[in-house]
Design a protein around this nucleic acid. Structure first.
Length: 425
RNA sequence: GGAGGGAUGGCCGAGCGGCUGAAGGCGGCGGUCUUGAAAACCGCUGGGCGGCGACGCCCCGCAGGUUCGAAUCCUGCUCCCUCCGCCA
């Protein structure tokens, strides 16, 4: 959510940002609504002030055992008029709220202008895609032949866009989770947390998934709970409605969770394999920091995610999402894309964003400035470190051998009981 | 699931319907004292909205209601705690 005052005073700038985001939203009517609200407010508050003063006077009179009945009579009438005047406010305020909640974050000035994915500039590339001397298989064929990925059984158990991992496949998934968490906690200074895998609607409002993106979520029937689509939701909301001490910042947390996404509107996209699933594992990194630090923290966060790929020796590149491709709550996002041999292209495996104070304002995440004692909104950031399912895809495909077996990356072997190669049982 | 008890500021904790945005304590900040620190003493110390400002308004779990006036009374909801039952 943007600051109401900022929107009021910078309508042209906000509309320019919306245009750059290729958003169809306009601020038509916003200023009129805001004006109406303030006029009403002045009127109502004036009446309240009068009522408060009179009530005090009545209290004084009664303590002095004097008659206050005439004043009380007058106040009864005022009170009724006040109720009428107040009645319109909630409607206006609800409309204002809807307006504000629908406005996406302002893109950072360094975010390049562009319409979509194809306009995202490449920031850097690491590693060289391996040249295979044999026809490459994709992870579905590799996984089926090795009997470590079973999509058919998953369909029977649940349905499409689910996966059943078995044997070395399940072990690989578990090893990756442990490996990623260990690197982030032991070497990058993050605190490991294991949050609930469901969160209430207040939390989803806090990080911006609600009210706009409910159709992407799985709701637990008959409750106010939704399955988490990313650990960002439960972990960022750890500090919702809190005023943090400045010296505790930056807060750096990492969490493993499964992620549940309805993937509405992605029919026909990535239907094969485990690139796009309703449920996938992910290790997430979340930071809460001072506004002055957030730009630098985004760079570090992105590097923390890249480090995992470097350790796994998987070729990747980093792109900056352009204004047309950036997420609703994000001010700036780097996507890390890993090389997928079967597709001959890079695919997103991590998304690292700074939300500036956009989430913090919604979730009321503040900190107390040591010097002034003033409370300020914190900045929030998060990034995948990494999406585990897609890492499995990348490893199977990049480390495949001609005979259909798959080498285990050096860094993972200690996590897999020393296993150096995945072969059919 | 059944029966009780509770929800007040950064924390603990008072609060007959008017003098309570809220006693008192702790913590924090500033000062006196001290070579320095501690102790002692003094003062300050919640969040938000509107206004250039003086100032005004809102907030005692949430939402309604009663009343001239609600932290205090009433209704509904949410959450927490204790005991019993069930259960990984």
């Amino acid at each position: 959510m943007l600051d109401l005052k900022f929107v009021r005073e910078n309508v042209a700038i906000v509309e320019e940002a919306l245009r750059k985001r290729r958003s169809s939203l306009t601020l038509d009517g916003f200023l009129a609504l805001d004006k109406a609200r303030r006029e009403r407010l002045v009127e109502v508050e004036g009446m309240r002030a009068e009522r408060n003063a009179a009530s005090e006077e009545i209290g004084r009179l009664r303590r002095e055992k004097k008659d206050a009945s005439e004043l009380m009579e007058r106040m009864k009438a005022l009170s009724n008029r006040l109720k009428e005047a107040e009645a319109e406010l909630p409607t206006i305020e609800r409309k204002m709220e809807e307006f504000l909640l629908a406005i996406p974050n302002m893109p950072d000035p360094t975010v390049p202008d562009g319409a979509g994915e194809e306009d995202n500039p490449v920031v850097r590339t690491w590693g060289t895609p391996r040249v295979f001397s044999f026809p490459v298989k994709d992870h579905v064929d590799l996984g089926a032949a090795l009997d470590i990925l079973d999509f058919d059984r998953a369909v029977k158990i649940t349905g499409g866009r689910f996966c059943l991992s078995k044997g070395a496949g399940a072990l690989l998934e578990r090893a990756l989770i442990n490996f990623m968490l260990d690197v982030h906690t032991r070497e990058h200074g993050y605190l490991e947390v294991l949050p609930p895998f469901m969160a209430n609607s207040a939390s989803f409002f806090g990080t911006g998934q609600l009210p706009k993106y409910e159709e992407d979520l799985f709701r637990v029937a008959g409750t106010d709970y939704f399955l988490v689509p990313t650990a960002e939701v439960p972990v960022t909301n750890i500090v919702r409605d809190e005023i943090l001490a400045a010296e505790t910042l930056p807060l750096k947390m990492t969490a493993y969770t499964p992620c549940f996404r309805a993937e509405a509107g992605s029919y026909g996209k990535d239907t094969r394999g485990m690139i796009r699933q309703h449920q996938f594992n992910k290790v997430e990194m979340v930071k809460i920091c001072r506004p002055e630090e957030s730009a630098q923290e985004l760079e570090k966060l992105t590097d923390d995610a890249e480090e995992i790929l470097r350790r796994l020796d998987l070729p990747y590149r980093v792109v900056t999402l352009c204004t047309g491709d950036i997420g609703f709550s994000s001010a700036k996002t780097y996507d890390i894309e890993v090389w997928i041999p079967s597709q001959g292209r890079y695919r997103e495996i991590s998304s690292c964003s700074t939300f500036t104070d956009f989430q913090a304002r919604r979730a009321k995440i503040r900190f107390r400035e040591g010097a002034s004692g003033k409370t300020r909104l914190a900045h929030t950031l998060n990034g995948s470190g990494l999406a585990v399912g897609r890492t499995v895809v990348a490893i199977l495909e990049n480390y495949q051998r001609e005979d259909g077996t798959v080498d285990v990356p050096e860094a993972l072997r200690p996590y897999m009981g020393g296993l150096a190669r995945i072969t059919k049982r």
